[in-house]
Amino acid sequence: NQASVVANQLIPINTALTLVMMRSEVVTPVGIPAEDIPRLVSMQVSRAVPLGTTLMPDMVKGYA
């Protein structure tokens, strides 16, 4: 089972991601792979992401 990136806190719209905002977790459906966490740092979210939400490619500007 592949771990995905999950929000560790509420991430407001247009916030630049930092390591403390993200954790890896095995979830369904699968989201952005956990190994991409270093690449996500400083990228902005395109919408508010609630705590515990799996990050999907369309939620991060410039990821897809």
Score class of each variant (00 low, 15 high):
Asn1Val: 15
Asn1Pro: 15
Asn1His: 11
Asn1Arg: 03
Gln2Arg: 04
Ala3Arg: 06
Ala3Leu: 14
Ala3Ile: 09
Ser4Asn: 01
Ser4Arg: 02
Val5Ser: 03
Val5Pro: 01
Val5Phe: 02
Val5Leu: 03
Val5Asn: 01
Val5Tyr: 01
Val6Phe: 02
Ala7Gly: 03
Ala7Ser: 15
Ala7Gln: 01
Asn8Met: 10
Gln9Phe: 12
Gln9Arg: 09
Gln9Ser: 08
Leu10His: 09
Leu10Phe: 09
Leu10Thr: 13
Leu10Ser: 12
Ile11Cys: 03
Pro12Tyr: 07
Pro12Trp: 04
Ile13Lys: 09
Ile13Val: 10
Ile13Phe: 10
Ile13Leu: 11
Ile13Tyr: 07
Asn14Arg: 06
Asn14Leu: 08
Thr15Gly: 05
Thr15His: 05
Ala16Gln: 12
Ala16Ser: 10
Leu17Phe: 02
Leu17Glu: 01
Thr18Arg: 07
Thr18Asp: 05
Thr18Leu: 04
Leu19Thr: 09
Leu19Gln: 06
Val20Cys: 12
Met21Thr: 03
Met21Leu: 07
Met21Cys: 03
Met22Gly: 00
Met22Ala: 01
Met22Val: 06
Met22Glu: 00
Arg23Asp: 04
Ser24Thr: 12
Glu25Lys: 06
Glu25Pro: 00
Val26Thr: 11
Val26Met: 06
Val26Arg: 03
Val27His: 04
Val27Ile: 09
Val27Tyr: 03
Val27Cys: 06
Thr28Ser: 13
Thr28Gly: 06
Thr28Tyr: 13
Thr28Cys: 15
Thr28Arg: 03
Thr28Asn: 11
Pro29Ser: 04
Val30Glu: 15
Gly31Glu: 01
Gly31His: 01
Ile32Trp: 02
Ile32Met: 03
Ala34Ile: 09
Asp36His: 14
Asp36Pro: 00
Asp36Lys: 09
Ile37Glu: 03
Ile37Lys: 06
Ile37Val: 08
Ile37Pro: 00
Ile37Ala: 09
Arg39Tyr: 14
Arg39Phe: 11
Leu40Val: 05
Val41Trp: 04
Val41Asn: 04
Ser42Val: 03
Ser42Thr: 11
Met43Gln: 07
Met43Gly: 03
Met43Tyr: 13
Met43Arg: 08
Met43Phe: 11
Met43Val: 04
Gln44Pro: 08
Val45Thr: 12
Val45Leu: 13
Arg47Pro: 03
Arg47Phe: 05
Arg47Val: 12
Arg47Ala: 11
Ala48Met: 13
Ala48Phe: 09
Val49Met: 04
Pro50His: 14
Leu51Gln: 10
Leu51Asp: 15
Gly52Ser: 09
Gly52Val: 02
Thr53Phe: 13
Thr53Met: 14
Thr54Val: 10
Leu55Ile: 15
Leu55His: 00
Met56Trp: 08
Pro57Gly: 11
Pro57Gln: 08
Pro57Asn: 06
Pro57Val: 05
Asp58Ser: 11
Asp58His: 06
Met59Gly: 04
Met59His: 14
Met59Arg: 02
Met59Glu: 03
Met59Gln: 05
Met59Tyr: 08
Val60Ala: 01
Val60Ile: 10
Val60Pro: 01
Lys61His: 13
Lys61Met: 13
Lys61Gln: 11
Gly62Lys: 09
Gly62Asp: 11
Gly62Ile: 03
Tyr63Phe: 12
Tyr63Leu: 06
Tyr63Gln: 03
Ala64Trp: 04
Ala64Pro: 14
Ala64Ser: 14
